[in-house]
Every structure is written in C-alpha cells, then in structure tokens.
C-alpha cells in the first residue's frame, strides 16, 4: 500500500512537471509576444517595438525558453526577484510569478482566494452527498415503481439543463423574482472577519445551486450502483441468511454500491476545488474560478499559469486519494 502511494506520488510529480512545462511553452510560443499584454497595460495601449523589447528583455523573454523555465522552477523552490521594465519585484518561494495587473506575487493572492472556492466546494458537495446518496438508495429500493420513475425522470430533466443556466435561474428566481431576503447578498465574506452568519448567507445560494444540481446526478449514480448491487448473488445469500431488510440494503448493498459513487465523487470534488467558474461568476464569489476568469480576460499570464498549475495539482491529489480510498473500500484491490 505504502509503496503504491509512493509510486503514485512520483508519477504525480512527473505529471505536474509536464503540465507546468506545457503551460509555460503554450504562453511562450503564443500568437503574440508574452510581453505584449503587460506592455499594452503599462503604456495604456501605446506599446511600441522599443518598449516591447524592453519588457521582453527584463522579463527574460529574449533568453532561450529552457533557461527561463529553469528560472521559473527555481523560483518555485527558492523564490526569485522579477524585473518588469525598471522595477524589481520580490517574489518569495514558492514563487509563481507576479501578477501583471496588481504587481503582487501570485502565490499570495492564490492563497487568499482558496477559502472562498473551498467553502463553495465543500458546502456544495456536502449537500449533494447528503441528499443524493439517500435518495438514490431509496429509489433503488423502490425501483420500477411510479415514485421511482417520476423521481428519475424529473432528476434527469434537471441534469440535462446546462449547469450555468441552472445556476443562473436559481440566482434569478431566488434573488430577483422572489426576493428571498437575506440570502440575496451573495459573495464570500471571511468567517473570521464578519462572523459565521454573514459567511453562511453569502454562500448559501451557491451551495443550493451546486447542491441541487449535484444531487440530481448523485441520485442517479447511486441508484444505478445500488440497483446493480442489489441484484448481485451475495444479496440473495444475505436474504437467505434471514437478515433484516435494513441490513441487506445498507450493510450489503450500499457498501458495494458506494465504491463507484466514491470514485466519481473524488474526481468531481477535485474539479470543484480547482475552481467553480460558473458558480463563482454567477454568485459573485471571488474565488479561484473567478480569479482565473479575470486573469484570462486581462491577459494576466502569470495568474493564468498559476491557476492552471493549481488545478492540475488538485486533480492529481484527488485522483490519488480516490485510488487510496478505493483500495480501502475494496479488499480485492487492497490485497492483490
């Protein structure tokens, strides 16, 4: 088991390295000079060839790409000083660059954005697991009945709405049309500064949107996995032993059905943690998703680079965790 985790970590580091290279190269060999955005910004769109050359030179874009990549990697481990035009910017380890817009080290801003995104992700995922899995189990127990069919088709209907539209409608109906008081002021307010109440109310609508949408999907996953598990031979054995229905359904059925659900959840949750662009944009929550969107619009290359790298790392870690959990859940994997 330990060797397996080590092996996966090594391969994870390898993947992160490759991703960072790919992102670096992508911007380096982009359609315009990588210095163009900052030049445009600093000169209020009057960037001349001379000025551009200056920015390219100070940012090191005239050096060979591997050399600059080397500096970038070194910066992550020990920090570096970045020069933009005539100003020097200190960028401590782990240095992910300096934002072209704010001139602040990217890492600090990233750290400050994490709580918002993680709050959304954890709250949303908590809600959809809390409702999705039990509803799925209940539907599987009653499979084929009218209630089951109605539930499945209505949930399928919700699932087939694009998420951004669904989130937008949630926001629209709950804040504008029905003017639900108190929750309408969405956004991320740090719990340490404004207290839990304000924090909760600011995120509530985002959680509801994410929760309901995720719930429809997880109900269907769970129901499917559960129906399959309940038709297995070992369920018949459990019944033949004289076990009560509750034990059969939960201890024998759900235990087996959880394995595929946990697998899907791990990947989903990783994606959420990496940034929920639609949710953050619609509910005005300034997390990582919002930030990366802003960076793309503002051509803030270091930030785009950093957010891309961040999501790669988060996804790799969550994948690793899924595999570890999987082997804990399934002894056949653990012991082979």
């Amino acid at each position: 088991m330990f060797a397996y985790v080590v092996k996966r970590l090594i391969s994870g580091v390898l993947v992160v390295t490759l991703v960072s290279m790919a992102i670096f190269l992508l911007f380096w060999f982009g359609p315009s000079s990588p210095a163009q955005p900052i030049c445009d910004r600093e000169t209020s769109n009057r960037c001349t060839q001379t000025k551009l050359a200056l920015y390219e030179k100070t940012l090191g874009y005239d050096n060979p790409v591997y050399e600059e990549y080397g500096k970038y990697v070194k910066g992550i481990f020990v920090g570096r000083t970045l020069t933009i035009a005539s100003n020097d910017y200190e960028c401590g380890a782990p240095c992910l660059g300096v934002s072209f817009r704010t001139k602040q080290p990217v890492k600090e801003e990233l750290v400050s954005r994490i709580p918002a995104t993680f709050s959304i992700a954890i709250g949303g995922a908590f809600l959809y697991l809390l409702f999705g899995v039990p509803i799925g189990v209940a539907a599987a127990k009653r499979r084929g009945t009218v209630a089951d069919k109605a539930l499945v088709s209505s949930f399928l209907f919700i699932s087939s709405i694009p998420y951004y539209l669904f989130a937008l409608l949630t926001w629209l109906y709950l804040t504008i049309t029905f003017e639900v008081p108190f929750f309408s002021d969405t956004g991320y307010f740090p719990i340490t500064e404004v207290g839990p109440f304000k924090w909760f109310s600011g995120l509530f609508l985002a959680w509801v949107a994410l929760g309901i949408f995720g719930c429809t999907q997880y109900t269907r996953f769970t129901r499917g996995a559960m129906v399959e598990a309940l038709s297995e031979d070992y369920i018949r054995t459990a019944k033949a032993k004289g076990l009560p229905t509750r034990t059969i359904v939960y201890k024998h059925g759900l235990r087996a059905a959880l394995v595929p659900v946990v697998t899907i959840f791990g990947i989903d949750f990783g994606t959420l943690l990496a940034g929920t662009i639609f949710t953050e944009r619609i509910f005005e929550i300034q997390g990582i998703g919002w930030w990366s969107l802003e960076a793309v619009q503002g051509r803030d290359l270091p930030v785009v680079q950093a957010t891309a790298l961040f999501s790669a790392v988060v996804l790799i870690i969550s994948n690793l965790l899924v595999d570890v959990v999987y082997s804990v859940l399934d002894p056949r994997v653990r012991l082979s």
Binding site: D233, Y234, R236, A240, G242, R255, A256, L329, D330, R332
Partner: peptide, 21 residues
C-alpha cells in the same frame, strides 16, 4: 426467523454468493 435458521440454502457460484468486501 426461519430463513437461515431452520432452513438454509447454498448457491452455485460461491465467489459471487459471498460478499466480496
């Protein structure tokens, strides 16, 4: 109360009939 107590059943494919977990 009777099942598994006064009457029991064993099945063909024991690998499938025993819970893998």
């Amino acid at each position: 109360g009777l099942r598994g107590n006064s009457m029991a059943m064993i099945f063909q494919d024991a690998l499938a009939a025993l819970h893998p977990f």
